[in-house]
């Protein structure tokens, strides 16, 4: 379990993380979202004790990272897949990690096989593709068979097969009662993997909700050649296309009946869910720092 209490991190004048308080529970996959520069990686760096918090605290199972005896056996993390000495083989990289934790070297072979890196393990890490580096990083995170797993953009660079593999892996680790914390910019992937979402904007917490809360029913989509009269009688209707309305607060039955009374032709009438992407865009609209100027 990870507990952040009033966590604040400033770099010079720049506040990267601003008074963040949260608790990550075992048995769930928590997704960590937010625009570029929102402070996701910084939060993870502070949890790992790489950067010292300006104020507040980050604890893993009640202890600071630096106070964990063999930390990889408690929390496995992947922050930067390319942070590997390019001249060292993937296997030797993992072996050095294992030796530092008194993890048997046979475990290195296990995680290499698990991540599909066994065949490339002898090669120098500098020759790995992004996806292979990512797999090596995940192998390192799994090395100590930890109760807590924290991955910064793990699907970045993975092929579709790898994306599906990591989704299944993370779900099964959470099902075993472990705490899984992942950041990502891929909304569709998050939607399928996470149980709970934490959204950060300019270092501040802007949402902390179960997945259902963010992708709940958004309304009914109505399509037809002449929907003006329907829009007039339903104040909760929004034009979402030239021949398309999205109506909230009414069932498909109510809307169909109304359209019939008005003598309108409908091409389509169906309930829609807002995608996570839409909810996310709405939540972060005001906190995008590094957005393209339209």
């Amino acid at each position: 379990m990870i507990t952040l209490q009033g966590l604040t991190k400033r770099y010079g004048g720049k506040t990267a993380v601003d008074d963040l308080t949260l608790e990550l529970a075992p048995g769930t996959v928590t997704g960590f979202l937010g625009p570029n520069g929102a402070g996701k990686s910084t939060t993870m760096r502070v949890i790992l004790g790489l950067d010292a918090p300006t104020s507040g605290s980050a604890l893993i199972g009640g202890r600071r990272y630096a106070d964990l005896d063999r930390p990889l056996r408690t929390i496995g993390a992947l922050l930067d897949a390319k942070a590997v000495h390019p001249a060292r083989s993937g296997r030797d990289h993992l072996r050095a990690m294992a030796l530092s934790q008194a993890i048997p070297l046979s475990r290195v072979e296990e995680v290499l096989a698990l991540t599909g890196m066994a065949a490339a393990a002898r090669r120098r890490a500098g020759t790995y593709s992004l996806g292979m580096s990512q797999r090596l990083g995940i192998a390192g995170a799994l090395l100590g068979d930890p109760q807590v797993l924290m991955l910064d953009e793990p699907v970045n660079g993975l092929d579709p097969d790898g994306v599906r593999w990591i989704r299944t892996l993370l779900r099964s680790l959470a099902a075993e009662g472990r705490t899984v914390f992942i950041s990502s910019h891929l909304m569709s992937e998050m939607e399928r993997t996470a149980d709970r979402l934490i959204v950060l904007g300019q270092g501040r917490l802007i949402a902390d909700e179960p997945m259902e809360g963010l992708v709940a029913g958004a309304g009914v989509r109505v399509r037809g050649p002449r929907l003006g009269p329907l829009a007039d009688v339903l104040p909760a209707a929004r034009w979402t296309g030239t021949d398309e309305l999205t109506v909230t607060g009414h069932t498909t039955e109510q809307i169909g009946r109304r359209a019939h009374e008005l003598g309108l032709v409908l091409y389509e009438l169906r309930p829609v869910e807002s995608s996570l992407e839409e909810s996310y865009m709405r939540l972060t609209a005001n906190s995008v720092e590094y957005g393209a100027q339209a």
Partner: peptide
């Protein structure tokens, strides 16, 4: 190589 991040994660 930034591998100091991994090293410090192993030996804080």
């Amino acid at each position: 190589t930034r591998s100091i991040v991994v090293t410090l994660a192993c030996t804080p």
